Every structure is written in C-alpha cells, then in structure tokens.
Simulated assay, not measured.
Amino acid sequence: MARNQVAKYVWLIDTVERRKRITFDELSQQWRLSSLSDGKPLSRRTFFNYRDAIYDMFGITLACDRATYEYYIAHDETEAQSRLSRWLLDSMSINGMLSDSQDVSSRIILENVPSARQHLPVVVQAMKQGLRIKYDYHSYKRVNATHVTLAPYFVKIFKQLWYVIGYDLNDKRVKTYALDRMSDLHITGEKFTMPRDFDPMSFFKDCFGITTSQDEPKDIVLRASSTQAKYLRALPLHPSQREEVHDSYSIFHYRMKLTYDLKEEIMSHGSDIEVIAPPELKAQIVTELKNALSNY
C-alpha cells in the first residue's frame, strides 16, 4: 500500500480525535487545507472508503451520531488492541510529519538508537505462525556470542529498544533478549504453543522496564522535589503510583519488584529523588552511589 494512502488514513483519525466530534462538512473543509488533498475536496464516497480501510487496518471505528451527524472515534477495542493502535498511529503520524518537513530537516534533531527494523518483522512472523526462532546473541557481558533457540511469546519496547520475551530451550526458562544484539536470526520449522496460563501483560505487571525478578513486589516510597514531581505526574513510573503533595516536595507510593531497571531509573534523577522505603532498596542505592563516587 502506498505510504501516502496510509498518511491519509492517519490524518483522518488524528483530525477526528483532536476535534472529538466533527461533521462531514467540517472534516471536508479541514481536508482541503491539508497537504494531502492537493486542493481537492473530500467526497463522501472517498471518505466512506477510507473509513472502511481504517477499520480494517487499525481496528478503529469512525462512528456517526445520527442525532447530530457528527463523526467520532468509537472506543470498542480491548486494552491491548488500543495500545497497539495508538502506538501505530503515533509512529505513522510522526513519520508523516517528518516526511512532509524535508525543507527544515536540518532543524529536526533525532536520537540515534539501534534499529530493530531487520529483526522485528521476523520475530512477529514467528509469533503469528507459532514457530521457534534461532539466532546468535551478542550479550554485553560475554566475549563470544551465544546460540539461542527461543519460543517467542511476545515483544516489548522500552526506551526505544525492542525486546523479545520467550521460552529459552537451552536454559529451560522464560528470558528476555534485545533485538539489536541478534545476528543470523531465522525462523525454524519447529512448532510451539504458548502456555494457556501465560499472560504477557502480567509478566511485567510488577516491574519497571524490561528486567524482572522472582522476588515478591515491595511497597516503595520515594520523595521527589516539586519540580521532579511534575515529571512523575506526566509520566508515572508504574500504574500503582500514588502521590501525596506537600509544599516543597511530593511523596510517591508504588507496589513494585526491586529490579535493575528501577534502580537505574531512580539513580538517573540524582538528588531530585530520594528513596524512603524499603530499607533494602535504600541500601542498594547508597552502595551504588558510593561505588560511583569512588571513581572520582
């Protein structure tokens, strides 16, 4: 499908979502002002075709209120479908905006991160077919690559990096692997079935980031400066986050496992975040900070 055609679908969804409710005449007027229209009006037939394509591609329904003849987005997706649709739309919207901004490309600075474009389609295809994958894995902690055979259960993105989580046939347990550290990835003819009681959403339910732990979740209490508290409100560390607001600081409560990613996140904020509880997390942070200070 032509990329310009997908951009039209994304434009329609984005416009309806931003307006909440919009009539066809208003939508057609906005369409004529967009760079996608070539100055031509949006016909009803074209709109209905686009609406059907949007449902087929994204699972999003552009519904019509027969009382007001206004179009709106009907939220009839599951939570997982909604997140995936939102991620796809955000990615495509940004991609379309960047493609339409070549004249100011030198003024748009992007972060250089490892790409998963080569491996992600292969992993997803293996998931759809229920087939194991094999690859060489280049861990940062080992000199030589490790040969891995994996039943891919699900994929997850964290801090712009893609990971696959699945059952490692060599280690006989569920493990996490970064896609950008793979080489010689290929799909085998070996079938697998994901356990019925395995829920991808529950796997990281009590964790921050991509690392997990066999330990039980802990009640975590953090003290954040008033400025840092605003960032935590805008982007919570975890769904369990609760806040107590004070004059010059806030106290945040969580229920999470003590993982490597969580400790790294806390330390990345320096003196703006202080661990109040539990004592073992506080001790771990103190030890890490002392080790870091000894380097200077």
Rank of each mutant, 00 (worst) to 15 (best):
M1V: 02
M1W: 02
N4S: 14
Q5R: 15
V16C: 04
L27E: 03
S28N: 02
S37G: 10
K40T: 08
T46N: 04
T46P: 01
F47Q: 01
F48R: 12
Y50F: 15
Y50L: 08
D56P: 01
M57C: 11
T61M: 11
E70F: 05
E77S: 07
T78H: 08
Q81P: 00
S93I: 05
I94E: 14
N95V: 13
M97V: 14
L98V: 14
L98S: 10
Q102A: 13
Q102R: 14
D103K: 08
L110F: 13
E111K: 08
H119S: 14
H119M: 11
V123T: 10
R132S: 12
H138I: 00
S139L: 00
S139W: 00
T146G: 00
T149K: 03
I157H: 10
L169M: 05
D171F: 05
K172Y: 06
R173K: 09
Y177S: 08
M182K: 01
M182V: 04
H186E: 04
I187F: 11
M194W: 09
D197V: 02
D206M: 10
T211I: 02
P217C: 04
P217I: 13
V221E: 08
R223S: 12
A224P: 07
S225C: 05
S226H: 13
A229C: 03
L235S: 05
Q241H: 08
R242C: 11
E243I: 15
H246V: 14
S248G: 14
I251T: 09
I251W: 07
I251S: 05
M256K: 12
T259C: 01
E265Q: 10
M267I: 05
G270Y: 09
P278T: 03
P278L: 03
P279N: 05
E280I: 02
L281G: 00
K282I: 00
K282E: 00
T287L: 12
E288D: 12
E288C: 03
N291A: 00
L293T: 02
Y296T: 04
